[in-house]
Amino acid sequence: MTARDKILGRIRQRLGREGPLEGAEAAALRARIDGHQRGIVPNRTNIPHAAQVDLFQEKAEALAATVSRAKSLNDVPEIVSDYLTRHNLPGKIKMSPAPFLDGIPFGAMPMIEITRGAAEASDEVSLTPAFTGIAETGTLCMASGANTPSTLNFLPENHIVVIRASQIAGTLEESWDRLRQAFGEGNMPRTVNFISGPSRTADIEQTLIMGAHGPRRLHIVIVDDGPEDT
């Protein structure tokens, strides 16, 4: 008997069943999965979208992320350059190959050197898009893919994320629905990361220290929706 048979057999025996569930019972469970009904969803995000964006910012800042607002992608180079100067960082950025980021006119900032691709151990600053933002907790949702390598979310010490206001959803559940729309029911990208603030640890005498293994700093740029988004 295989371990699989042993384990399933013992579970069934303890549940007082002979074999696997069949017929209507199995169909009901299948339907429960396919229907992926929402459970109890906190009421706090039951507010207009503009207020959700404010809530997202407030929650993210409470998690020790920093946030800037930009009117358009044209404002992003200056925000990034200020950020690098403020933290005394070299003008070198590893950026996701995502087409959305092509719209940032970095050409106007020749002192910032941009390379694109997955993260390497020597990268100090990464710049990535996000799949969604979640207002409920100030969380970013990142979906991996050819243009969005997930190592950029973890390896560099500084992570800058550029997100459109329209990408900010209320809750985890809304974010799941958008993911299903983008990738198809039952399909997931290899990695979906929910990120709530920069990395931290309290493993030494319960003292909170930032930057344990992931980014020490997380900066989020919320860009107003362009004409194409509204």
Partner: peptide, 18 residues
């Protein structure tokens, strides 16, 4: 928590990491 990560299968054909 700061990181909640869902991992599904190995890297996809056109993924550049994972």
């Amino acid at each position: 928590s700061v990181y909640t990560t869902f991992s599904t299968g190995p890297r996809r054909a056109d993924d550049i990491d994972g």
